[in-house]
Each structure stands twice: as structure tokens, then as C-alpha cells.
Amino acid sequence: MIATLPMYLFPETRAGYEALWDGIRDALRDTAIDAPDALTHDIPPMDGWAAPDLVLGHICNLPYRARFRDRVTLIGAADFGLDGCGPGEYRALYVVRQDHPAETVEDLDGATMAYSEPLSHSGWGAAATEARAAGRRYRPTLQTGSHAGSAEAVSRGQAEFATIDAQTFRILARHTTLTRNLRVIGATEPSPGITFITRAGQDPAPYLAAINTAISGLSPLYKENLRMISAVSLPTSAYDLPLPPAPAPQIGPDGP
């Protein structure tokens, strides 16, 4: 059995997530749910989400919608108290270099984009879906593999803009210099945040209770480190969002 929490795992947050897992593990065991002693950090996220013995993971809403909706049990979405978002929601920030002329998202029509992954809602899907609805065209020219990579690509002028998960942006701004040459000019619409899951066929209630017990029990240091307020059970309809187009040299309302 495994537990893996990869979505906001940075060197600076690792100890906080390990402390959170310690609390979750103990609370699960108190309800007679088996749980591993420690988090697994070295498994690719897709493999972790698909594991038949998954005790706990957390997943971006796009891979959940696209590939895992019928394969896992939703528990609840992490609430980080992000600006402009409701409980359990997050959004992505449109970022450009400080010297870029764009002042609004509308000014990015035709711009080159660094994107993290095709199955990242915040790093690709939200922007692509909103561009298609608004009749804008973006040119996704560089796949970076991470939000940090996208921030670095924009800062270096390898692409004109990127969309960065607001919680990740907060972590990068606090612990790195990657955001210093960036400017936020807008945000995507809020959607379900990073969501805790377990294997299919489980009752989510004791898992949600264990997560919130563990969050409440974190030390002040780790609470400040993670900035996680709670896990919130969202209706399944909250995840009924359209799938975005795949990245292509130019994306618009009529496709490439």
C-alpha cells in the first residue's frame, strides 16, 4: 500500500507534507484503516494515482476528469485560502516578464506560451479552454514539465507567458527567485483545487476526517509552511468541466 502527495512537493515543503502524512496515517489507523508508515516520493504521479493499493494521493482536476474519474474515490479538495477562490478551489495566474507590454489577458492573443503539462489544468487546460471560449489564440511553444520550469522559461524570454497555479506561485515567490522578473496580469476562473483521492470503492468520510484532523494538529511552523486550511468535500458536479484541446502550434476557437 502507498500514500503519495506529489502536487506541491518542493524541498521547502517536504517536511511539512511528511508531518501532515504522519497525522493522517495515525488518524486513519485509529479508524482501523491500514496506512503505510511513510509517504512514497519516488513514484510518478500517474502510477501513484493508478495504484490498486493507493491509500491516499492528491490529483489535479484535469487528469482526474480525463483519466481517473471512474478509477478512484474523491475525498476532498485542499483549501489554501487563495484570493478569488471559494473553499476547496484554486486558479492559475497569467504571468509575463516585467518588460512585456501586455496589461491584460486579452493582450496575449497570439502570444507564445510555456506550459507545464498537457494534463495540467492550471498549467495548460484552464487557459486553453478559456482562450477557445473567448476566441483568442495562443501558441504553446514550450513544454516545461513543471510550473517552476514555466516560470523560468518566461523569465528568460523563452515564451511570452505562462499560467502558474496560484499556490505554486506563492511557494515559488517565498522560496525562490523565479518570480522576481514576472508580472501577474490576470487569472483563470476558479475550479476544484488539488483533490485528495484514494482507491476506488472506499468510503471517503473517514479519509476526509483524518485529513482535517491532521491539518488541525500541525505545528504552527508546518501550518505556515503548507498554508493548507482544510480539505473540503465538493460536489462531483464541480468537476464537470470541458476537456481542453491538446497543445498545438496554435490553438483557437476553431482548433489549430
Rank of each mutant, 00 (worst) to 15 (best):
R183L: 05
V154L: 04
T163A: 10
A148F: 06
A151T: 01
I171D: 05
F169P: 04
A187M: 07
H147V: 00
L182R: 04
R174H: 14
L142I: 08
T168K: 03
A148H: 13
I164H: 02
T176A: 06
R174T: 15
R139K: 14
R170G: 00
I164A: 02
T176V: 08
R174K: 12
R139G: 02
P140K: 10
H175I: 12
A153D: 08
N181V: 10
R136M: 13
R183T: 06
P190Y: 03
G186D: 06
T141W: 11
S146N: 13
R170I: 03
T144M: 08
T188E: 11
E152W: 12
G157I: 10
S150A: 14
G186K: 02
H147A: 01
I171L: 04
A166M: 02
R183F: 00
P190G: 10
S150Q: 08
F161H: 00
L182P: 03
S146M: 09
L172K: 00
T179M: 01
G186N: 02
A162E: 01
R170H: 04
A173F: 02
Q167C: 14
Y138L: 14
L142M: 10
P192L: 08
R139Q: 12
H175V: 14
P140N: 11
P190T: 07
Q158L: 14
F169G: 07
E189S: 15
R180G: 11
H147C: 05
R137K: 14
A187Y: 02
A187I: 00
Q143M: 15
A187F: 02
G149Q: 12
R139C: 05
I185F: 08
R137T: 15
G157V: 10
A151R: 03
P190V: 07
G145V: 07
R180H: 13
R174C: 13
P190A: 11
G149W: 08
A173Q: 01
A153Q: 08
A162N: 05
T141G: 12
S150N: 09
P190Q: 11
T179E: 07
R136C: 09
T141C: 11
T177W: 14
E152M: 15
R136I: 02
H147F: 04
D165Q: 05
F169L: 01
H175D: 15
A162K: 02
G157Y: 08
A159G: 04
R170M: 03
S155Y: 02
L178S: 05
A159R: 00
S146H: 12
G186R: 01
E152I: 15
L182K: 00
Q143D: 13
Q143G: 13
T188D: 12
S191I: 10
F169A: 05
V154S: 00
N181G: 13
N181M: 12
Y138N: 03
Q158A: 13
S146Q: 13
E189R: 15
T179Q: 06
Q167E: 11
V154I: 06
T177S: 15
P192M: 09
S155F: 07
R156K: 14
